[in-house]
Nucleic acid binder design. Structure first.
Lengths: 114, 114
DNA sequence: TCGAAGTATACGCATGTATGTATATACACC
DNA sequence: GGTGTATATACATACATGCGTATACTTCGA
């Protein structure tokens, strides 16, 4: 079962922007401070959280520290979602089978979220 | 860009268990209370949050309310992750290209375009 | 209409979290 | 060693969140 901790780590807009910024490759803390509108102490704290969650890795480079993305948690997320994709696929299968059995079928109308 | 609100909604173990329980199909609130070790009021609150996030839909059934999963946010998540999958794929491509260049240098096959 | 079952909400409490300021630590360069 | 740059941490503050208890709302059945 999926641990909520990963989602907890991703549940912050600043951290998401940090991850987004790191998609281009390694980033020093100072680079991220420029791109994300948060004080340096905040970026460092977020990076620590991301690191503890395994989402990023660090590499010293002189007096700077270069952060980059780690693949594993993303794969974990993909695997989790795959388990739910099965739900829709199964629904579609049943729907198709029902269609085959009875040519004229009416689909129920789901409600929209508020 | 991905909204952190979706992750925020998923960042609770009780809500994850509720979603997990709903993978089998529609569930009444009472069913979920039995499967998740949380008081009924808590389950209702979590269901409201999940509904506002678009993760579930409701359907009245007499005095009960049947909740079920909605596909869209999961697709949204998949699309988000796909953007990061590209990162690893690109890394692998560069690695493979580097390997090819190295092998080419080892075995003198002339005339590779730079 | 009344009671009971199912569900939703109000409230208080305890805990968690994101932020900035200030300060500490690590490293480079002179 | 001393100074400046880069990064991390301590602290206080403001705010959000999850939980249970108690209560209101809705629907069914008699």
């Amino acid at each position: 079962m999926m641990d909520a901790a990963l989602f907890q780590t991703l549940a912050d807009p600043t951290r998401l922007r940090i991850l987004e910024a790191m998609r281009g490759g390694e980033c020093a803390v100072g680079d991220l401070v420029k791109r994300v509108d948060v004080h340096q102490s905040g970026v460092s704290r977020h990076l620590r959280i991301l690191h503890e969650a395994g989402l990023v890795q660090v590499r010293p480079d002189g007096q700077r520290r270069l952060y980059s993305l780690r693949e594993e948690p993303f794969r974990e997320l993909e695997a989790w979602i795959a388990g739910y994709r099965q739900v829709w696929d199964a629904r579609l299968d049943r729907f198709g089978a029902a269609l085959e059995r009875q040519q004229a079928a009416r689909t129920p109308t789901p409600d929209e979220p508020t």
